Amino acid sequence: MSALHEAALAAAQAADIEPELLQLIRIRASQINGCSLSLDQHTRGARAMGDSEERIREVRVWRTSKLFSPRERAALSLTEAITLVFAGQVPNAVYTEAASLFAETQLAALIWAATVINAHNRIAVTTRLEGSGAPPTAAARRG
């Protein structure tokens, strides 16, 4: 998973995707997936990059918040659609909007980043890893 993350990060850097935008993607997918480990890690990362507490809090309600740019909104919408892909395909309107605001390499990097955080979330949620980063107890693993 570390190698997958590093490859996605390198693709995002090569495509000039802002690190702050990657954190928003990771936060939103982690919220949807209920992954406290990743949510803790990436909200701390967003703060360290200078993102405001207000913006971090409002990622959950980005659709009604005035704090996000059109590019951020498109990336968050695409992230939600990728995260919830079990409900159906990524809607054409979501993909088209993102494609209109990001170059092809950037769009590919966003898809890659959303896919990787979803994989991380699924492993962390399955193994009961929590925000403190402590491994789960045997009782927690049994559910």
Rank of each mutant, 00 (worst) to 15 (best):
I32M: 10
G88Y: 01
E130P: 00
R71A: 12
R60H: 13
I123M: 15
H42D: 03
V90E: 01
P135E: 07
W62R: 05
A138F: 05
C35N: 10
F102D: 03
Q106E: 15
A103I: 00
S52N: 07
M1R: 07
E130Y: 07
T137R: 12
R141F: 15
G131N: 06
A119G: 11
S36N: 06
G143M: 10
Q106R: 08
E130D: 15
L76Q: 06
G34C: 11
E20R: 15
R47W: 04
E20I: 03
W62C: 05
L84Y: 04
I117C: 11
I32S: 12
T83H: 03
L84P: 00
E18Q: 13
L101W: 01
P135L: 12
K66R: 13
R63K: 15
A109P: 10
N118V: 02
H120N: 12
N33S: 12
R44V: 10
P19I: 09
E104P: 00
T126W: 01
R28H: 11
M1Y: 05
Q31M: 07
E72I: 05
A138P: 03
A138Q: 12
R55Y: 04
T126A: 15
G143Q: 10
T64Q: 14
E104G: 00
I82D: 01
N33A: 11
W62V: 04
V61W: 10
P136N: 13
A75S: 01
A108P: 04
H42E: 09
C35D: 09
A12K: 02
G143K: 11
V125P: 10
Q89M: 08
A113E: 11
P19Q: 09
K66S: 12
L78N: 09
L67S: 09
L129C: 02
E130G: 14
R57H: 10
A114D: 06
I123H: 11
T64G: 14
A98C: 06
Y95N: 02
E72M: 07
D51E: 15
G88P: 04
L24K: 05
L84M: 13
V94G: 00
A87T: 11
T126P: 00
S77M: 15
I111K: 03
L78A: 13
I82P: 03
R57C: 02
Q89P: 08
M49I: 08
V90M: 02
I56M: 05
Y95M: 12
